[in-house]
Design a binder for these strands. Structure first.
Lengths: 216, 216
DNA sequence: GTCTATATGTGGATAGAC
DNA sequence: GTCTATCCACATATAGAC
């Protein structure tokens, strides 16, 4: 998880994602929170729960983050940057659209498995809406998250368009199909934790199905 | 939405889903709550919000439901029965697996669009976990909901198995593919509200893609 | 940097009038 | 059957000691 968050400092006013020597402590809080959020839901998790997960008390959490929402937003930014760092190279590498897209699917599914807590939280938040608790610095971060989401979706749309142009793919509505793909992949966070098949097989079979379909 | 809920009265102790002449009033509360839940998230919605949506006050809501959780659970049961009533006939009708499955996809997507508030709430709850607030009667209803979910997934698994046996489909992991299908379809609640294409086209193209894939 | 208070606000739920 | 008024629990966030 070696993603810099330096460029996200949309919070000069003392807001949400400060960087510096606090980084290590923040990361601990972040992953503890992600675990708790996934287990109990965001609203079902109290700051004390997060502290428990850390083997500490409230004070620790509030030392690194000014609010519960700040924690959640930082999870979002970290996770989305992680996702883009993992998938976007596969999208832009040279080669046929077909193999690029398959690679993107495998990477996404594999990352979902490897960072399940983090991505579970982020994906479920798509349904709950971003908790924009109002303050301008938080709003800026929320905007950034929405931008990253869009960027991720567009990655798939453009590779699909490439494939259509090159004649590899059928002439589909690329955004619709991208969303179908996204849905299948993101849905995996609901069941990856309880499947017994190795993740490489799951990722490969997902990619195969999503590209070549079911009909013989 | 003509689904009886009589058989769900797992609440003889005065619980969650009583039936009788109250039915009409309950339905109003139910749909108002679904609208509010989708707009603000379940936890972000207060009982007063639901009352506002009804043009009434708290008292009205509590006259029909003993708790916020009871409302939510009733939404779940109603929605899942609605879904099964819509899709399960298409699964068991005679004919090739391929056309049955396509029909199931089209029906699911179309229903998602027609009852968007209701299904949005139910689908997003998959990520938040059912709010089992503990009391035995509520636990019973929650169990019933889980059963209906499983039933829905199994509908797809068994049609896919049929198709594999008949040679119409490739030899895939039917549960994995069912979950991929489910994910694509349920994901639509996130964007159906903002697409401009007619729902019949969307449903048809989803079915086409999910069966025959992307590769030419 | 981490802790133990504690203030404060909010929202679910109830009682009882109309 | 619907309303108003109120109770009470709980969780966020802060203040300030160590």
């Amino acid at each position: 998880m070696a993603v810099s968050r330096t460029d996200v400092a949309a919070d000069a006013e003392g807001g949400v994602a400060r960087v510096g020597p606090k980084e290590a402590g923040r990361r601990e809080v972040l992953t503890a929170a992600a675990r708790a959020f996934r287990a109990n839901g965001v609203e079902g998790t109290t700051i004390d729960d997060i502290a428990d997960e850390l083997g500490a008390t409230k004070g620790r959490v509030y030392h690194y983050y000014r609010s519960k929402n700040a924690v959640l937003l930082d999870i979002h930014v970290s996770a989305m940057e992680l996702v883009l760092a993992e998938v976007s190279p596969a999208a832009t590498t040279p080669g046929p659209a077909r193999s690029r897209l398959a690679d993107m699917v495998r990477r996404t599914v594999t990352l979902n498995d490897r960072e399940l807590d983090l991505l579970y939280v982020v994906i479920s938040a798509l349904f709950n809406g971003l908790p924009m608790s109002g303050r301008p610095p938080e709003r800026a971060v929320a905007d950034r998250v929405r931008e990253l989401r869009r960027e991720f979706e567009d990655l798939f749309v453009s590779v699909i368009d490439d494939g259509i142009r090159s004649g590899e793919f059928r002439n589909v509505d690329s955004r619709l199909v991208a969303r179908a793909l996204l849905g299948s992949m993101q849905w995996t966070v609901l069941w990856l934790g309880s499947t017994d098949r190795p993740i490489t097989e799951v990722a490969a079979e997902m990619a195969d199905y999503l590209l070549t379909g079911l009909v013989r």
